[in-house]
């Protein structure tokens, strides 16, 4: 692909990421916010493709959009009242938060510029051959096998916790009666 086209697409993608993210955080309606978030996630997946790590793009879509976004949507629907509510942003809060955030951005950028490899480029070549290596890294005890196991434990704990927390006793008792 010619370089300029690459850049153009990339930039367009970046704009979509950030734009949808901004729309998500500023949307009054939570469902709209969640949907904008899905768009943003998708653009991020494309970003991963640009990076050459398509595997992660798939993971991104699967987990973030497939699991997380869906979950959020369900939660929003379950906590229904918030759908009708107007997001009443306190104006004062907004500007202060904007200021704080601006500050963080500035600091981040300044810090990032110190990094020596800042000037380099990432090729867009797909590196699918790293996937087996990744699999090995994840599962081999000598490498990050332990981490992998721990992550699974964490998921289990989260699962149990979520079930327990969300368990509606009253309804259950009501049904038994």
């Amino acid at each position: 692909m010619p370089l300029n086209l690459l850049y153009a697409v990339f930039i367009f993608n970046a704009i979509v990421i950030l734009g949808s993210a901004i729309c998500s955080v500023t949307a009054r309606n939570l469902i709209h916010a969640a949907l904008w978030m899905v768009l943003s996630f998708f653009s991020i997946a494309i970003l991963f493709v640009f990076m050459g790590i398509g595997f992660f793009a798939v993971i991104q879509i699967t987990i973030y959009i497939g699991a997380i976004a869906v979950l959020i949507l369900f939660a929003i629907m379950l906590t229904r009242r918030s759908m009708q509510e107007q997001e009443d942003k306190r104006l004062k809060n907004v500007w202060v938060a904007l200021l704080a955030v601006g500050g963080v951005l500035t600091v981040l950028v300044m810090t990032l510029r110190q990094i020596p490899i800042f000037g380099e480029s990432i090729s867009t070549t797909q590196v699918d051959e790293m996937v087996p290596a990744l699999g090995k890294a994840l599962t081999e005890p000598a490498q990050y096998g332990l981490l992998f196991e721990l992550a699974s434990v964490l998921l289990l704990a989260a699962l149990i916790g979520a079930i327990y927390l969300a368990f509606d006793r009253k309804k259950a008792e009501g049904e038994e009666k």
Binding site: A14, L18, A21, V25, L47, V109, L112, S121, I122, T124
Partner: peptide
């Protein structure tokens, strides 16, 4: 061939938006 910096900037911006 995308400059590394762009990725980082995107990430930073996204972080701040979040």
């Amino acid at each position: 061939m995308i400059p590394f910096a762009w990725y980082l900037l995107i990430a930073a911006a996204l972080f701040c938006i979040g």
